[in-house]
Write a protein that binds this DNA or RNA. Structure first.
Lengths: 230, 230
DNA sequence: TCTCATGGCGATACACCGTATAGCTCCCCT
DNA sequence: AGGGGAGCTATACGGTGTATCGCCATGAGA
């Protein structure tokens, strides 16, 4: 019996490794959000059966961790930053940019400690940039505070962005156009300060608002880093 | 044929309303985390078929929104706060306490705009406490910055707490005891600053770290609220 | 009092999910 | 040439959210 008589194996199965799995998962998430990532779909994109992935991955949550760590590679600082402030500001902005490229990152940010190699490398680089400016505990507090700020800010920004996209209205347009539920709420008069804020507030670009809050927080940190141990 | 001869309907079906559904869902989440909340399980807890809930709720995500708004009721300030700083500090601490009572809140915080009645009421109270201290835009920026901080800080705290619980080790014990993966990473010598931080850092109570960072951020806000429009 | 409409409820069903298990097939080493 | 082991696949289980539909009980109208 020649090779021609016997049918070729249905899948000429390409070797496959963790990296391809992570890349496929990220592609799916970029296209359709985290909800579009399923073990079956990732496998399908690699011409593999679902169970094949479990040779490289132990659980779906672990796949999420790996995806996050992969993105942390994009967040790593390119060159050595000028000073600590530039280091922290850069970290914040690079994280934000990564989350705008991969919106699903906002769903995962801060949800689990970032202990992958790239996550650790980012932390290392950040701590190194603040090294010696104050005692270890103060430095830790500084990094944690700034991280907490930009994590929270990024999450809110992405949440608002999705809401706008879903309703087709910007936050500012709400009150006028239709904001079916919120408008009615504001009209009840039970939220005067909020109404005034929505009415009189200037609509400011998300990046500006992000950068402004960040500068405030950095100022606060500066006050503790220069003085020895406030 | 008397009433006694005819068997009672198997489920004496209690009327049921949104509040009971939300309460049941929260109870499930408190016990087993967000993952333990399924439409079927919530319904079962109310002696109802799954489809019954869809008369009161349109989607599972909406149920999550309702759960969050219910918890915002616990976050509402009890009495009128002394000054703006007390208002913001109180808000932050009450949110944190709520998240410690309902850990699943950390998974949802900042994930979607809080537009329910209680969420709006919290925002209203907060804005009211800052009213007139600066122009509307500065006040908005202040509230957003503080909210971003405590949202991010709470998420991280809960994430760490779960990690500790899962490994049975505190963050400090990692390096010594076994931290299967992280210890090896630190041992590679590729993360000197991080290693030093882990080694030399003082283990500080989560609440203290939370409060410290919060005070820093509040100081930063104070600098903009007292000066008119920095 | 009898009849009919209606609206809420339940059962059923569908498509999909994560993953445990077990068997098969192919390759390498002896 | 034969045996062992590794890696892949098929199957299966117990769950998920929710669309659809048919029933029954109730209240209204005659």
């Amino acid at each position: 019996m020649s090779v021609w008589d016997r049918p070729a194996p249905p899948n000429p199965p390409v070797p496959l490794d963790r990296g391809q799995i992570i890349a496929a998962a990220i592609a799916l998430a970029d296209e359709g959000g985290l909800a579009a990532v399923s073990v079956r779909k990732v496998a399908a994109r690699l011409n593999a059966g679902p169970m094949r992935l479990y040779g490289y991955i132990s659980t779906k949550d672990q796949l999420f961790d790996l995806m996050v760590d992969e993105v942390y590679a994009e967040i790593l600082p390119g060159e050595r930053p000028g000073d600590w402030r530039e280091a922290l500001r850069g970290l914040a902005h690079r994280t934000r940019q990564a989350a705008l490229r991969h919106e699903w990152l906002a769903d995962l940010l801060g949800g689990r400690p970032a202990l992958g190699p790239n996550g650790l490398a980012v932390t290392e680089a950040t701590l190194a940039a603040l090294d010696g400016l104050a005692d270890v505990d103060t430095v830790m507090r500084a990094v944690e505070t700034v991280s907490a700020y930009f994590t929270g800010a990024i999450r809110r920004e992405v949440a608002d962005l999705r809401a706008e996209r879903a309703t087709g209205l910007s936050k500012r347009e709400w009150q006028r156009a239709s904001g079916p539920h919120v408008t009615k709420m504001l009209a009840t008069g039970r939220f005067p300060a909020l109404s005034r804020a929505v009415h009189d507030g200037t609509e400011v670009a998300a990046e500006v608002s992000f950068a402004t809050g960040l500068d405030w927080v950095l100022d606060a940190v500066a006050a503790r880093l220069t003085r020895p141990a406030g």
